[in-house]
């Protein structure tokens, strides 16, 4: 009875779930962390990492994305040898980069190159959230900029899949300068009449939202994608209020006029192909 007036302790849910991959019990089954449905693992993977029950789109690595969108064997990577620099001499940064290079087999948080979509050559970039959450340091900014410049020189349509936590804090101001660098390159591409399509995938935030992600002639997004400038935690601390349901999700941005179209993963290639056709490719 003594505890009758005790305040019930509720479990506080994170607004953005930290665990983005569905939990994988060893074996043949995975459990969707969104709806709780148990899915046959093979079905989950053959379904492009989408839960068959609630349609949640889980994050994809860059190589799966490339094989999903580009014609078979058409991808030719660029600038794979650019080396990350530790401009602030930030402790542990070199080691972290080295470890990620080994575990992901990527040189940085974005993969760029050229490829074909239904036979049409495109300049293609895809960010990989496994590499420091796809954050933009100097190498990511440089690879994106070189891709834009190549698209400008060769009059190629430019397609970038974003997935990023924003600017790379460990590279300080040099990371901030990448916002201006990529946006300036896009200005020239735009003046040259190039077609730029961005596909926003989970998560697209911070300095990437505040630069090349939101500058597409056409902005597509996968269902449920987090898209924002500030993170929900920072916003809640600033305004001292709870955030509405669905805030900063792709559907919310579409409703507010910042996304052209939400496209399910399985239909992205077809949509891109159609948009290329409509621009005379």
């Amino acid at each position: 009875m003594a505890n009758i007036f005790k305040k019930t302790k509720y479990v506080k849910m994170n607004v953005v779930s930290k665990q983005e991959a569905p939990s994988v019990p060893s074996g043949l089954w995975v459990k969707c962390n969104n709806c709780g449905e148990v899915i046959y693992k093979e079905d989950f993977h053959s379904n492009l990492k989408i839960c068959g029950s609630c349609e949640k789109h889980f994050r994809l690595d860059s190589s799966t994305r490339i094989s999903m969108v580009l014609d078979e064997d058409s991808f030719e990577p660029m600038d794979e040898d650019l080396q990350t620099r530790n401009v602030l001499d930030f402790p542990g940064y070199d080691k972290k980069i080295k470890g990620l290079k080994e575990s992901t087999h990527l040189n940085e948080g974005v993969v760029t190159g050229t490829g074909a979509i239904d036979g049409n050559k495109v300049a293609f970039g895809v960010m990989d959230s496994r590499f420091m959450m796809g954050s933009m340091g100097a190498v990511v900014g440089e690879k994106i900029t070189r891709l834009i410049e190549k698209a400008t020189e060769e009059s190629l349509p430019l397609i970038i899949f974003t997935a990023s936590g924003g600017a790379r804090m460990q590279e300080g101001i040099i990371s901030l300068m990448q916002l201006a660098k990529t946006s300036a390159a896009l200005s020239r591409f735009n003046d040259a009449g190039g077609l730029y399509i961005t596909v926003l995938t989970d998560p697209t935030s911070g300095g990437v939202t505040a630069s090349f992600a939101m500058l597409g002639d056409i902005i597509l997004a996968e269902p449920g994608t987090f898209i924002g400038f500030a993170g929900p935690r920072v916003i809640m601390q600033t305004i001292k209020q709870e955030l509405p349901e669905g805030f900063q999700r792709a559907e919310f941005l579409k409703e507010h006029g910042f996304v052209d179209k939400i496209v399910a993963r399985a239909e992205i290639k077809e949509t891109l192909s159609q948009l290329l056709m409509l621009h005379g490719f």
Partner: peptide, 9 residues
């Protein structure tokens, strides 16, 4: 984000 990006460009 869009407003900042537009200014940069």
């Amino acid at each position: 984000g869009e407003a900042i990006a537009r200014n940069l460009m």
